[in-house]
Simulated scan of single mutants.
Amino acid sequence: MSTTEQARPVAPMTTRQVASRRRRASAAKLWREFRASASGMSGLIFLGVVILLAILAPVIADRSMLDVTQLTDQPRFAPPSWEHPMGTDHQGRELWVRMIWGARTSLLVGVAATAMSMIIGTLVGMAAGHFTGVAGGVIMRFVDFFLVLPSLVLAIVLSSVLSRGVLTIVIAIGVTSWAATARLVRAQTLAVEARPYVERSQVLGAGHWHIIGKHLFPAVLPLVLANTTLTVGSAIIAESTLAFLGLGDPTQQSWGTILKDSMDVSAATSGYWWYVVIPGLAIVLVVLAFTLVGRTFEAIVNPTLRSR
């Protein structure tokens, strides 16, 4: 371009483009801070490996390896060895095959139940914090009612009443575990409601949906995401508990079902330690990994924890 030519004027960015750029910058900053945490990254890498194994389960181990009618030559209760890396169960099935296929169900139930719990808790919490007067009081009494109920007992009742299956466990866990999230979101909503820009929106005539969608939800979303990673671990434990109690789908492999099978054959007292230790250790490690990721993410998005 010659010096006599004038440079073309740069078009100013729209409000949406500015907001998109800020979101990308915030996400990049969050990722940089997350990578600086050794515990968070170790938990994330471990979860990535487990999720990858669960996704590739049909490729790694064909489902026919779970068919007991095709395992007539397999030894029962074989201890871990080079030939049987994690040992075999009471029907001669390789335990590592059951663990990989069980990871699919356990992770699916944990994530789906947590998603349902987060959606219900976020909507109810924002409504309880935004609407004042009688409406807010009624919503909070509804939340308190679910808080005092023992969630595990209620989940057992729902799983017993409804037909057995993965969807039933997801509903039972999701419907009974949202109250704590609702109280957390309500507290954050009340803090956001007191900020000047929300008051200005109300003075300018903004409606409830505009304030909730444009101001409250973006403000509480980081806290909800941090709480989500912490809740997934609890959901996995709840799924394992329900399956261990015999309320899961017996046709689906899960870590809780493996523990129930080990209890039915008295593996703990019969010396078949691998039948109990391996699924139990898998649950502990996955829950620990989710907790490490959640705590790291929470420390990043929460200024109080970050300053500590």
Results as ranks from 00 to 15, higher is better:
V138C: 14
V109Y: 02
H130Y: 15
F142K: 07
I119K: 13
M126Y: 10
M140D: 08
G121V: 07
M118Y: 05
M126H: 11
T114F: 10
A103Q: 03
M118Q: 09
A113Q: 04
A127K: 03
R104Q: 05
M140S: 11
G129I: 06
V111E: 08
G110Q: 00
A112T: 03
G133M: 12
A128W: 10
G129Q: 06
V143Y: 07
S117V: 12
G129W: 04
M118G: 07
I120H: 04
G136Y: 06
M116Q: 15
A113N: 01
G125D: 00
R141Y: 13
G125T: 08
V134G: 14
G102S: 05
A115R: 06
V111T: 09
D144Y: 09
G129C: 08
V138E: 13
A113W: 00
G121M: 01
R104G: 03
A128S: 06
T114C: 10
V124P: 01
I119R: 08
A127C: 13
M116A: 12
V143N: 02
V111D: 09
S106R: 02
A127D: 06
G110P: 00
V111N: 05
V143T: 06
M140K: 12
G137C: 09
A127V: 10
G129F: 01
V134I: 13
G110F: 02
D144S: 10
A112R: 03
V143S: 02
L123T: 14
A112P: 02
I119Q: 13
R104H: 09
A115P: 07
G133D: 13
I120A: 07
G121C: 12
A113F: 10
M140C: 11
I119T: 13
A115K: 08
G102T: 00
V109R: 00
A135E: 14
A128F: 07
I119P: 04
G136R: 07
F131E: 05
H130P: 09
M126R: 04
V111I: 11
V138P: 09
H130K: 14
M116T: 15
S117M: 13
L108W: 13
G121H: 01
L108V: 07
S117K: 04
S117R: 08
G125V: 05
A113H: 02
V111K: 02
A103D: 04
M116H: 10
A127M: 07
A113P: 01
A112V: 10
T122A: 11
T122N: 07
V138H: 08
M140H: 11
A103H: 00
M116L: 15
G133H: 09
H130D: 09
A113S: 11
T105V: 03
G102V: 00
L107K: 05
G121I: 04
G102Y: 02
H130A: 12
D144E: 11
M118D: 04
D144A: 12
A135R: 15
H130C: 11
R104L: 07
L107Y: 00
R104E: 01
T132C: 14
V134D: 14
H130L: 14
G137Q: 15
T105N: 05
R104D: 07
A112K: 00
G129R: 00
A115W: 08
M126N: 06
S117Q: 08
V143R: 03
G121S: 09
V124W: 05
V138I: 15
L123S: 11
